[in-house]
Amino acid sequence: MPDNVVMESVDLGGGRPSGSGGALGNGGRGDNYSGAASVPQRTYVTGMMIALGGILMFFMALVSAWIVRKGFPNSDWQPLGIPRVLWLNTLILAASSLALTRSRRCLLAGRDDEFRHWWGVTTILGVFFVAGQLLAWRQLVARGVLLATNSSSSFFYVFTAAHGLHLLGGIAALLVVAFRPPRRLTLDTATEVVAMYWHFMGGLWLCLFVLLLVGK
């Protein structure tokens, strides 16, 4: 027998290929992928995880730029007074995540009306969050702190704008699932991926907020 020939047992199983990802809990995975023309439901979850990886990298680039800039020697870094409404916004966003979790639990338990109710609450809280961020901007502008005023203000606006735009995307997704859910995904999968995205945005905001507070 030639060197290094490994006689592997043949995997004839019609089920999931081994080594695939998606170790994210269970619940309504849909078909095992076995060559059927439809995309398995777990693929959407995988896709969302990967997308979140890219988004995380994007924000990490911005944050590292901020850290570097702050750390310049002889720095003319002028710390920014964080508008107090941001505390309220953070609470609102946290509450929206709780509402979303509640909503999904209702869906999984079959309580459709409550699912829709809490889904709506999440959406409204999300809108309030964005409104609150805009209010924070207005307060800063009133103080004379604009995008180009100094480095710390530039970063503040960039952080909040980038996060806010992503959150608007999340709100759009919430609305789409509510009114025109995509046909290829089961409602369970659709709500699962939106929830992943929403919680990620909440966690991201928390990190950014803490950074802005601590980094004065």
Partner: peptide
């Protein structure tokens, strides 16, 4: 970025039966 999401998801989740990573 959008293309990458496709490539990675497809490779992870849509391999034929018996197609292990190796």
């Amino acid at each position: 970025l959008l293309g990458s999401i496709n490539f990675i998801s497809t490779t992870i989740d849509m391999r034929a039966p018996g197609m292990t990573l190796m």
